[in-house]
Design a protein around this nucleic acid. Structure first.
Lengths: 365, 365
DNA sequence: TTGAAAGCGCTAACAG
DNA sequence: CTGTTAGCGCTTTCAA
């Protein structure tokens, strides 16, 4: 059984204990393929092969290796595997925020979709800071990810250059949460925020309102919310309606929505219809309206965005715009798989990559 | 300028274009330290040194290297760095769910806390499946993380063994979201769920109620919610109150809370006080109660868990149990830093690691 | 302050 | 079916 073919396995070729012994050399001290190979009386190549293509190894040898694997408590070292094999099984994902339900549903679906192929998620949150995004792109690229998923289409020039470079180097890049036919360069999975703003304005206009407010997010770099607001205002003005775009105070979103409504009442500046950057401020305002005895929609129509669970729970329901965040994540996962394993994963149809927002008309409009 | 000291840099020693050229050899095709070294007329060692300890390199050389770095578009290869240097800058985090606000707030705070030290987050979601957790622990360990953060104290024996082994191999392990003085082995940051259940029951009892319902989560492996429910029932029974533990239907949480309330009304089985596995079903039930004209708290007292933003927004407020999810994440980050960089990061006081849940009494009780 | 040598753990390519 | 050789890109150690 004794063998000295392998170059100095950390565990020693003749280790006796069933618990893996650890000796501190230069390495991590864990069992390596060399340790396993020594135990099984084969070379590391055979162990490596067994691990990746067991059918190429004879049954006998396989049994010995299995036993050795077991008794050494071998854990592969993916860094070494990556270095030698240039396949990293890491998918890097950069989103503005982890805590916001906006992105967490998508990330969850993405994670679930990648799980079967044993791709792991390297996740970073920019907190809507473009500088930080740039740093994070740089940082995750150092891990040679199999794919890189980023949020939105606007970023610093340097960040864009990094993405282009990465793509040129063979790292698939997917942009999510935004879809702009004119923005080329990377695969996009998302929806058009201008279109959403237009949709929202047209919905309220079609209900007969001509005094509108759009309550925008006050996060400076939530450009997508601003884009919806701008489109909303443009359409409203075109229809000769009165329209104001307000910024919410920088509070927790529901509290911010509540505060906006209270402010408008205090100033006797109430509009007849309000649209919000998301369902959460809309819900806060809805609850404030209820507390104040304002009849919705008779005195005030309200329209949210996102179709979060809360929207269907408020009284007769909060009207909103639905974008399927979860399926966005699922489609993103499919797209990533299609790019990483083109032979074994079906491509995603171009038309699937554009998520269709739609008005969900409930009791609040 | 021409040099052939370095072993065959991918980019070639004399590349002219400002954009880094790429030729496919065995490697990734990206510029490596060898590429940079060749451009700067030094060895890779000097480049490596410059990158990690610039002050050890002469100003002249530093300038040359900086220029070469720039012109080659060098991106480090962290796998190679890890393999040679045994430092991975990856922190692995395994949570039951990414989408649930329960964990996403904590993960966000953890991510923010690790950001300054340039540690990146490898995130996995178990979806409350113990088998999947075991796989994921195995998978992330292959990346030799600097630290491993797991959720809760209950897992498969194999998973526990993996964690113990990892810790023995020098990987710091932190358990979050649970705190049990008897559960040794790993650092814990969290709170005691039994204590929370007791707290909830005592609060309702102290309001004079003797007919209680606990609405439990129906996710089979959300053991922590069950633990709260069991403690709740025990305390209630001890006080000779009537107490029922109900499972919510498997719906979206707010909808599930609404459904439970409707069911109880339909069966004419309404209690006088209800406690919920979280604020979301509580909020759903609160809204249903409001729709049904049930006076809260006069006819029905309601108590949530988690102190999510919605709790403070409902009418006179939903009473709840506050546990600071964000500070849990922040403290976890500090703990990880203290374990990864013991010389430069202050230790976390033991007493800080136990998060104190407290009743937030609002208008619903 | 800089360099040479060796090796981290693994896999591609080629032999046998 | 199994082994040999070489090398992925970086850092450690030691020497100059």
């Amino acid at each position: 059984m004794k063998s000295s073919r392998s170059p100095d396995p950390p565990d020693g070729a003749g280790a006796q204990s069933s618990a893996p012994a650890r000796t501190r050399g230069r390495g991590l001290g864990r069992a390596t393929q060399a340790t396993v190979a020594a135990r099984a009386g084969v070379t590391t190549m055979t162990v490596s092969r067994f691990l990746r293509a067991p059918q190429q190894v004879s049954a006998e040898t396989a049994d010995k290796i299995r036993a050795a694997l077991e008794s050494t408590g071998y854990t592969p070292n993916k860094h070494a595997g990556m270095l030698a094999g240039r396949r990293s099984s890491i998918v890097a994902v950069i989103v503005p925020s982890i805590a916001s339900s906006t992105f967490s549903g998508t990330v969850q679906a993405l994670s679930d979709g990648l799980q079967p192929r044993e791709l792991e998620l390297l996740l970073a949150a920019t907190n809507y800071d473009p500088q930080r995004e740039e740093q994070q792109i740089r940082a995750v690229l150092a891990w040679s990810p199999s794919a890189l998923v980023v949020t939105g289409r606007t970023r610093t020039p340097a960040a864009s250059a990094l993405l282009r470079q990465a793509q040129a180097d063979g790292v698939p890049v997917v942009q999510i949460w935004d879809f702009d036919a004119r923005a080329g360069g990377f695969v996009q999975i998302g929806f058009n925020h201008t279109r959403v703003g237009e949709l929202m304005a047209r919905h309220l206009l079609s209900c007969g309102h001509d005094d509108l407010v759009y309550v925008d997010n006050s996060v400076p770099h939530d450009l997508r919310a601003h884009e919806r607001g701008k489109a909303f205002a443009r359409v409203a003005r075109k229809a000769r309606a009165r329209v104001r775009v307000l910024n919410m105070p920088r509070l927790e979103p529901m509290a911010a929505g509540r505060a906006v409504l209270q402010q408008l009442r205090a100033e006797a500046a109430m509009p007849r219809a309000m649209a919000f950057a998301s369902d959460f401020p809309a819900a806060g305002a809805w609850l404030a309206a209820q507390d104040a005895g304002i009849a919705v929609p008779a005195q005030l129509a309200m329209l949210g965005f996102g179709d979060y669970p809360i929207a269907s729970q408020l009284g007769a329901g909060l009207s909103t715009v639905s974008v399927d965040r979860q399926s966005l994540g699922t489609i993103c996962a499919q797209q990533v798989l299609a790019m990483v394993y083109p032979e074994s994963s079906p491509p995603v149809a171009a038309q699937q990559r554009e998520i269709r927002p739609r008005i969900v008309a409930r009791g609040s409009t």
